[in-house]
Design a protein around this nucleic acid. Structure first.
Length: 581
RNA sequence: GCGCCUGUAGCCCAGUCCGGAUAGGGCGCUGGCCUCCUAAGCCAGUGGUCGUGGGUUCAAAUCCCACCAGGCGCGCCA
């Protein structure tokens, strides 16, 4: 049984050797795991900087490094050398290549995936109000989160991706009011329900803003719904479901999947929210206004805030987002070990309030948040009302269209219509997803078509193209992917071959790191590095025209390993790995 | 005003959590590479006061403080 994680196996060896040397040379038994670095591959694979013990031992770091080197007898798997103040470990190329190829050969499409952990993770993401189509400002949420979900699954966790459907707040009521009373404003030309409804929603919002006497249209609907009026519940459900059908279709196009749709109203109608509300009211920090509205004193609960009053019930008795969200998170805690919420940074305060309130109730307030900044347009932040908005549907259309032009230009005379269509979809969506996830969540993104739909340089098409090259070589050699004969790894001694194997070897360890950090963006950097390493190999090492058959077979093994790793990496980003493009 | 986030070459972005060996890519620009496994590729060159100023440290893009600039939040909205 080959290791699933070649890199960690070698790293553990470097850690053990360093500990052994410290003990042998100085009698030090400290844990030094966290001190082991992974420097520039030109220098070494692992390094132990000796500054840390310099003062304690009264010796200069380079002398310590020297002493540590001398304390260790030569090893089979790694070369150990003192270089200045560092004790460096370099995996012997033959071991590195052989171990890595064996691991990938054995695990194939699950290379990079860890053993199941039995940990249940619930990732709530997107959860956009069903008042209209997803726009690009918010599209960062599903794209980022779907990659995070894929990474967490690869790390062995059992993950549920959930969409929390706001079907009963003020905005939902406004949507229902719009759909029922402003039917003339429905966009009858629109192809999808979310696009049809949004115009009526906008009209309704505008009408409510201009005419205060319309307010009962909203409050009566909300009250009836919360009071358990079944006819009203059906009216809400019908409209919200229509909008959600459109939103879900968009997400599916973007290759984003939710395992569960949780309707907010469910927890209200089955009494859960009421129970929570009653418990909150019993808190010492809970007070009632003269008109009947209830609020929590957040300062009294220990939150240092400029907004001490967190309202949990309106004067008419209906509940608020915060109240329902507290109930929802309690519900989620019963269903999973770890909760992750992917939210826009505008929800930061709300998140704190929910956690503080849950803890005030003596409930588990552990929630991991991934906050992302917004995608804005050069002319400002997106606003549906101001018409300053790019819908995700339009962005998807445009990206596929531009990709189609690109494929046609490059290979129009070689490929048939069907293939061009396939590649356009793979490349268009790939470029888009890759571009959005490649940036750290907390950084703002200014949306520009030319960046989002770039097909050259550090982009998805670059990675996809490298993958297609691997497939092309295998096909020309007459092998199906994953079916190359085992080659003699010891023949792979060129720099480009070793560097490629080294890059492939890191993948499983990196997946674990990304999952632990709950970060999605580093996977794109890795994808580019891996593709580059393959391209260097492609440039320097002919495969089909290799000097002899045994070398050719060995190289084919490496090509197949690169193929599998590139495909698995792209899969984490939710991008297709085309066999040709 | 208070709180949180961001500030790395003309442009976009890694690296920052856990301080260490010359700050990495990409785009752009200049020049070169298709009788050779897909040129969405490759090679060479160009370009950086890591927002500013202090501090901690043997060592700071990374930690601390102040300031500047941009974003977000401070609803009986979600």
């Amino acid at each position: 049984m080959a290791t699933r994680d070649p890199w960690s196996a070698f790293k553990n060896e470097a850690i053990a050797l360093t500990a052994e040397a410290l003990h042998a040379a100085y009698g030090i038994t400290d844990t030094i795991d966290h001190l082991i670095e992974e420097p520039d591959p030109e220098l070494a694979d692992f390094a132990f900087p000796c500054y840390a013990f310099s003062q304690e031992l009264g010796e200069p770091p380079h002398a310590i490094a020297q002493a540590l080197e001398e304390a260790l007898p030569p090893r089979d798997a790694v070369t150990i050398t003192a270089q200045g103040p560092y004790l460096n470990f370099t995996i012997k190329p033959d071991k590195l290549v052989a171990t890595t190829l064996e691991s990938i050969r054995e695990h194939g499409s699950t290379y990079g995936h860890a053993k199941p952990t039995n940990k249940n993770v619930l990732v709530e993401h997107t959860s956009a109000n069903p008042t209209g189509p997803l726009h690009v400002g918010r599209a960062r949420n599903p794209l980022l989160a779907d990659t995070l979900v894929r990474i967490l699954r690869a790390a062995g966790h059992h993950v549920t991706a959930e969409y929390y459907v706001n079907d009963m707040g003020r905005q939902a009521a406004t949507l229902v009011y719009g759909a029922e009373e402003h039917q003339d404003a429905l966009d009858e030309d629109a192809m999808k329900e979310d696009h049809r409804l949004v115009t009526a929603y906008q009209k309704a919002s505008q009408a409510l803003e201009e005419d205060e006497s319309l307010e009962p249209q909203i409050s009566e609907r909300l009250q009836a719904f919360e009071d358990g009026d079944e006819e009203m519940a059906l009216r809400f459900r019908e409209v919200v479901t229509r909008a959600m059908t459109g939103i879900r279709a968009t997400l599916e196009r973007a290759n984003v999947h939710h395992d569960n749709m949780k309707f907010e109203s469910e927890l209200v109608l089955n009494g859960t929210v009421d129970d929570v509300l009653e418990r909150l009211k019993k808190l010492d920090a809970c007070h009632q206004e003269d008109d009947g509205a209830w609020y929590l004193d957040m300062e009294a609960l220990g939150l240092d805030t400029e907004k001490p009053q967190l309202f949990i019930a309106r004067s008419d008795g209906t509940t608020l987002y915060a109240t329902r969200d507290i109930a929802y998170h309690m519900d989620k805690h019963q269903r999973a070990d770890t909760l992750i919420d992917v939210l826009g940074e505008d929800h930061k305060l709300h998140a704190q309030e929910v956690q503080t309130s849950m803890e005030a109730l003596g409930e588990n307030g552990d929630i991991d948040f991934v906050f992302y900044n917004f995608v804005s347009l050069p002319e400002g932040s997106m606003s549906t009302r101001a018409g300053r908005v790019v819908y995700l549907d339009d962005l998807l259309d445009e990206s596929i269209e531009r990709a189609r032009q690109e494929v046609t230009e490059r290979r129009g005379d070689e490929l048939d219509e069907e293939t061009i269509d396939r590649v356009a979809r793979q490349v268009g969506l790939g470029a888009l997803r890759f571009n959005i996830v490649s940036v750290q969540a907390e950084k703002p993104i200014e949306f520009r078509w030319e960046n989002a739909l770039n097909f050259e340089g550090a982009t998805a098409p670059f990675v996809q193209y490298s993958h297609a090259r691997t497939c092309g070589i295998l096909e020309n050699a007459g092998h199906d992917p994953g079916q190359t004969p085992q080659g003699d790894a010891s023949l792979l001694t060129e720099d480009a071959e070793i560097q490629l194997a080294r890059t492939l070897a890191r993948f499983p360890a990196l997946v674990k790191t990304w999952a632990n950090q709950q970060k999605a963006h580093p996977v794109t950097s890795y994808a580019v590095k891996t593709a580059s390493a393959f391209n260097d190999f492609y440039r320097d090492c002919p495969v089909l025209q290799a000097d002899d058959e045994t070398l050719k077979t060995a190289r084919l093994s490496l090509v197949d390993a690169a193929r599998a790793t590139l495909a698995n990496t792209l899969d984490l980003i939710g991008i297709d790995a085309p066999a040709s493009m």
